[in-house]
Structures are given as C-alpha cells and as structure tokens.
Design a protein around this nucleic acid. Structure first.
Length: 473
RNA sequence: GCGCCUGUAGCUCAGUUGGAUAGAGCGUUGGCCUCCGAAGCCAAAGGCCGCAGGUUCGACUCCUGCCAGGCGCACCA
C-alpha cells in the first residue's frame, strides 16, 4: 500500500501511497464515464432551496446575478450528490412596494390615456420597463385599474417578461415554483401562524401592535409582526413561509440572501425555534455585495433616474459563461469587484477561458487522434507507462467527489472552481511538456486514456457550474 | 453607539478543522510555436499576513483591544 515512508522536518512523517492506487483510480474514472463524481450520499433526502427572490418591481441587477449563480450551482451540486432539490423563488407581491409600483405605472397609464404630463415623483419606480408595463396594461386592461390592481399586473408582467427571461438567458435552471407572498395573505395562513405563536406564548401586545418575542432567541430586540394599523409585517409573512418549508421533510432548508439582510437571520431562526422546529435545518447563505466597475472605476448607478446597469446588460456585454464564472471565483462571503472590461478580456483575469481552453484541448487531441486513424473505442492504457505528471493529476482527480462534498457542506461552490483551475493548470503544463500522440503506440493509447479522464472530469464540472464546455474556441 | 463581512505581493484574491520554506492570477523582466491549438508553457523579481497584546511546543488561522473600508440596525420589503 505504501511505496515509501520518509521523515521530513520536525515531527513530520510522509507516507507515499503506492502508485498502483492511482492506476486503479484512473481505471475507475474511465469506467464511471459520465457518472464521474456522482454519489448516493443524498439518496432519498430532500433539500429546499430558495434563492434570488428579488422583488418583482424591476429588472434583476448584478447583485441578484451573484445570488442566482450561487443558488443554481449549489442546487446542481446537491443533485450531483444524489439529493432531490426543490428550487423556489419567493415572490414579494404584497405590501407597500407593490402599491408604489402600481402608482408608478398608473402615472404613465394616465399619461397614455389622456395625455396628462408624466412627472414621476420621488421614490417611484422609473426606467423604460415602467413605460413598457404601462403600455401593456393600458392595451389589455384599459385606463381604469386602481393602484393595487395596477401594481399586481405590473409585478406579474415584470416577473414573466423580465426576471424569468433574464434568468433563462443566464443559464439558471427553471424554478420548481414561484411562491406568492400574497397567496399566504389570501389563504389566511399568516393569521393561523400567528395564532400558533400566541398559543406558544411567544408574542406580546404593546403600543397597539403585536410583537414576536425574538429576544428569547438571541435577537437584540423584539419585532413587530402585526402593526398598529392591523396589517401584518414582512416578518409575519416570512415566518409563515418558513413554517411551510419546515413542515415538509426537507433535510435542509437553504436560503440565499444578500449580505445586507444579515440582521434578519436571528429573528427568522428564532421564529422556527418558537414554533418547535430545529432551526439548524435552516442554512442561510449570505452573498456579499458586488461592486460593478468598468476599467477599474466603480460604475455609479442611480435608481431614481432609472439609469443603472441591469443583469441583462451585463450578460449581453460579457456573456453568460464569463459572468457566471466570475461570480464563482470568490468565496460568497467575499466582496466582489466585477469589472466589465476584465470579465470581457480573454486573459487569466478571466479564468473561465483558461478552463474552457483546457477542455477544448482534450477535444482537439481526440480530433487529431481520429485523423491518425486511432479508434478511441479500442484503446487501452498500459498503467506502468503513466508518468509523474499523469500520476499527479490522477491523484487530484481522485479527490473530485471529496471537493463536491466540501462545496455542499460549506455551501461554497468556490472550492470547485479553485480545484478546477489547479487541475487545468497542471494539464496545460503537461500538454506543453509531453506529446500525447506519438509513434509509440502503447504510450499513445495510455496517454489518450489519461486525457479522456481529464476530459470527463472537466466536462462534468463545467456542467455543474452551468458553464459551456466548448469543443472548439 | 451596536451587529455582520473584509484587511495577506504593486493590483485582484486563495490559504481546508492551529502545523513543514505563506500560494495563485494579473502586472513587471527574460525565455518557448519546422512538433496534438501560444486563449498556452517555463523562469526571475516581489511579503513584519492592518496594528498591539494574549493562549500554545507551534498562530495568517484561536481570544482581547485598537485602526481602516463595506453593509446593516423600521410598525419598508
């Protein structure tokens, strides 16, 4: 089992595994083929993932994009490990912002209807999409919808025609459900939850409002769930929403939130404890802010004037692959500078190309082999011919499953990206040092088998990341 | 004021539960295509790991206090 054991430095002993281990690993990867990295760890276990959940009041921006990729890739990773994943987008289609949206749209509808001057007020939603929605609303429903109905219409329209479309072009897999906040109000679910909290004596009445006693659960203060005016707060909806998730048999309930919501964690976790659940099942992944730049300087954006760069703008400019990958090149807790010029450039500033190039190289080697009349289905490795570099990379590839697992445990796809860049680096170096196809038949076949293993791992990983695996570039 | 995140090479960032000489890319300097794709490879230079204490045989890693930047602290969502 061990090839060598050496002492190295103060108090260290190094064990060298026999290279037979790595030879067998190569055979295993070649046997696994498209199933490389797959595991049964999560068999019969379900995961609930809620992410993005951007308010349907305007187009997605870059920050949403980061959360979208993180969620999409984490979901892929869970599935890779055998879990059944339910993807959900929570739609905040209730409350003040929908009113404001309605008001913003209605103003332009009025303008269309009787040519009233359009003068958007402070705090209203603006931008061309508001005009698009208004035009649509005017055509379909006429000029007389009230503010609330206009807001509902607009929210639906934005979700369908802006958000969903952007996500599709960003390569985010379709959600299993868009869950409506409004529906919980209509079904009286929120009232039911509040009654339950009352029964458990986790609320108090004070100043005419109803408070959830979140301080009991580590929050710094108690929180209002029913306002003085009788309307439930956003927290009330969220408690009910999470209760619904927890009532099902999900092993984990994962939320991906912008880091600006971190102050919210205690109270939501606390509410689940109050309802008798184990709040450790709730994993809240915070994704840090994205600082959009161009040529090294921050891009100033102003929502008020409606002048800001949307996710769609970014995808159109740099491409979905480069954008997705860039979001994954830092740990999610790390602040990210997203420089449009760098992400467009085809250099190592933009490592997605480095990785894709490694993959394209494997494809190209196979193309060349075909030209040399080598039948790739009839090649066999002579394991004793594997050289130092090949053995080193096989060692790396044998840790693929472990890396996937690490990503899931830490909720951090970055580890996979880091792993892949390391593997690609070794492969590029190897490619420059060794020729795969030579006059030496058995060496050629061995190396083709090895390159195939690299090919399989890269292809699988790129699929998990939702990035194209191009045969040519 | 309180809470969360972040201070590591000129720049952007890694550093797995405390362990061997702190790593990578970009940038800089110098090399490599009669040979499967140079979107690549090789080499060099570059560091008091924000500062100061503490715990430990051992600290970039853990604890305390400062300093700097970001983000939160609603009966908005």
């Amino acid at each position: 089992m061990f090839e060598d054991v050496k002492t190295a430095g103060p108090g260290f002993i190094n064990f060298y595994l026999d290279k037979k281990i790595w030879q067998k690993e190569l055979e295993r990867i070649l046997r696994d083929k498209k199933n490389v990295g797959r595991s049964l760890l999560g068999k019969n276990k379900k995961i609930h993932m809620e992410f993005i959940s951007a308010n349907p009041t305007g187009p997605l921006h870059v920050g949403h994009g980061r959360g979208a990729v993180l969620g999409d890739v984490l979901a892929n990773l869970y599935e890779k490990l055998g879990y059944t994943v339910w993807r959900e987008y929570y739609v905040n289609d209730y409350g003040n912002q929908v009113q404001t949206l309605g008001e913003s749209v209605k103003a332009y509808v009025d303008h269309l209807a009787d040519n009233r001057p359009y003068t958007p007020e402070e705090g209203w939603y603006q931008g061309d999409y508001i005009k698009d929605v208004a035009l649509r609303l005017f055509k379909e429903k006429g000029p007389d919808l009230d503010r609330t109905a206009s807001g509902q219409f607009a929210a639906q329209w934005i979700l369908k025609n802006s958000i969903e479309k952007d996500l599709a072009s960003f390569g985010v897999k379709p959600f299993d459900r868009y869950f409506s906040e409004k529906s919980m109000h209509e079904n009286n679910d929120i009232q039911t939850t509040i009654e339950e909290l009352k029964k458990k004596k986790c609320v108090k009445e004070e100043d005419g409002a109803l408070w959830f006693l979140s301080r009991k659960y580590g929050d710094e203060k108690d929180r209002v769930i029913i306002r003085k005016n009788g309307l439930p707060t956003y927290l009330a909806s969220d408690i009910t929403y999470h209760q619904k998730k927890f009532e099902q048999d999900y092993q984990e309930v994962v939320n991906i939130w912008g880091a600006d919501h971190h102050g919210y964690i205690q109270r939501v976790k606390g509410s689940m404890e109050a309802l008798g659940f184990d709040s450790d099942r709730l994993k809240i992944v915070l994704v840090q802010m994205v600082n959009l730049k161009r040529g090294g300087v921050s891009v100033k954006m102003s929502k008020r004037s409606g002048e800001y760069i949307t996710l769609k703008d970014v995808i159109d400019e740099v491409g979905a692959d480069a954008a997705r990958f860039t979001f994954l090149t830092r740990r999610s807790e790390s602040h990210l500078d997203f420089d449009l010029d760098l992400v467009k450039s085809k250099s190592m500033d933009n490592p997605v190309f480095y990785l894709q190039y490694a993959y394209a190289r494997t494809c190209n080697i196979f193309e060349y082999a075909k030209k040399e009349k080598i039948d790739l289905n009839k090649i066999h490795p002579d394991l004793d011919l594997l050289n130092k570099e090949e053995l080193s990379m096989i060692k790396v590839m044998s840790g693929y499953e472990e890396i996937l697992l690490q990503c899931v445990v830490q909720h951090e796809p970055y580890y996979l990206v880091d792993y892949l860049l390391g593997l690609a680096k070794e492969f590029h170096s190897y490619y420059n040092k060794h020729r795969v196809i030579t006059q030496n038949r058995s060496e050629t076949e061995t190396r083709l088998c090895f390159v195939n293993a690299i090919h399989l791992v890269l292809e699988d990983a790129l699929n998990v990341l939702g990035v194209q695996a191009p045969r040519r570039m």
